[in-house]
């Protein structure tokens, strides 16, 4: 089942002098199996948007539908029980390492599944699976999360969300503050989660990631949906309008195309795929 936004508006501190309209009539749909990027300049409303997806915020107007859950502006129409929704839509905030609090890594990761009603042993089992998924082995299970390195902490925090086996995974800037190698490993992790059938919603400023991993881009500009398109199409048109910049790789591929090399640009997502396309053309 998709996530559907129907005419969603959101105003912070409504009816006060500080009132600020962060979202203005958002209409969009995120299908199951998508790897969607949400992009836009700082302060355009991306974070506000994603918080509607698991009812951390309720819209001021309109409705967000996720399966049979209605996050409606009208309290009477709103589904009361939020826990099933929060299990279904996992949310990884920016710098998730700040949410760790337990004594051991495995306890921290088992926290969410336990909250969602799993038995302790079952939750621990899930935690171990999730830790394996993010690439942390048994030696980490009984260590304190506070003695780990920054990157490891972040993996633990992400495992803490994965352990609840969400169908949708919303990640806000997961590569912020990581070194290039670490960022790549992190993104490959999300790709493998995606391949196992989880829908990924990625909020990012990094257009290279959008080109490499996503099949759909939602551009938010000043609280409105500016465009819903493919990465290839977005970078082809005027991206500077949204304070975005085409990835170097994409510009290079475009120049090749202009220069007469008949590569198929929508096949290009990273260096190896570009090399493959060039090889195919000059063969």
């Amino acid at each position: 089942m998709p996530i559907t936004f129907r005419d969603v508006s959101f105003t912070y501190a409504a009816k006060t002098p500080f009132s600020y309209e962060a979202l203005k009539g958002i209409n969009l749909q995120i299908d199951e199996g998508d790897f969607v990027a949400i992009v836009g300049r700082t302060g355009c409303g991306k974070s506000t948007l994603i918080q509607h997806m698991n009812a951390l915020l309720n819209p001021s107007q309109g409705c967000v539908e996720i399966d049979d859950f209605h996050n409606d502006s009208d309290k009477k129409k709103r589904t009361k029980k939020v826990k099933p929704l929060r299990q279904k839509v996992g949310m990884v905030f920016q710098f998730p390492e700040y949410q760790l609090f337990e004594e051991t890594v495995e306890k921290d990761v088992a926290f969410a599944p336990k909250n969602f009603g799993m038995k302790p042993e079952e939750a621990l089992q899930k935690a171990h699976e999730a830790l394996g998924e993010v690439g942390l082995d048994e030696s980490f299970y009984t260590r304190s999360p506070f003695e780990l390195s920054g990157g490891e902490k972040r993996r633990v925090a992400i495992a803490g969300i994965l352990a609840a086996s969400p169908e949708f995974l919303v990640v806000d800037e997961p590569t912020a503050g990581l070194d290039p190698k670490g960022a790549e490993t992190m993104m490959d992790l999300f790709r493998s989660i995606h391949e196992k059938g989880t829908t990924i919603i990625l909020v990012t400023h990094d257009m290279d990631l959008v080109l490499k991993y996503c099949n759909k881009v939602i551009v938010i500009d000043d609280g409105e949906v500016a465009e819903i398109t493919t990465p290839d199409h977005l970078f082809d048109v005027d991206v500077e309008r949204y304070s975005l910049q085409s990835p170097l790789l994409f510009s290079f591929a475009s120049s090749l195309l202009k220069g007469g090399l008949a590569i198929e640009r929508d096949q290009v997502s990273d260096v190896p795929s570009l090399a493959k396309e060039i090889a195919r053309c000059i063969r």
Partner: peptide, 13 residues
Amino acid sequence: SRVMKAQASRGVD
């Protein structure tokens, strides 16, 4: 408020 939101996503009510 940030931590509360993160923990609410992990099922804390």
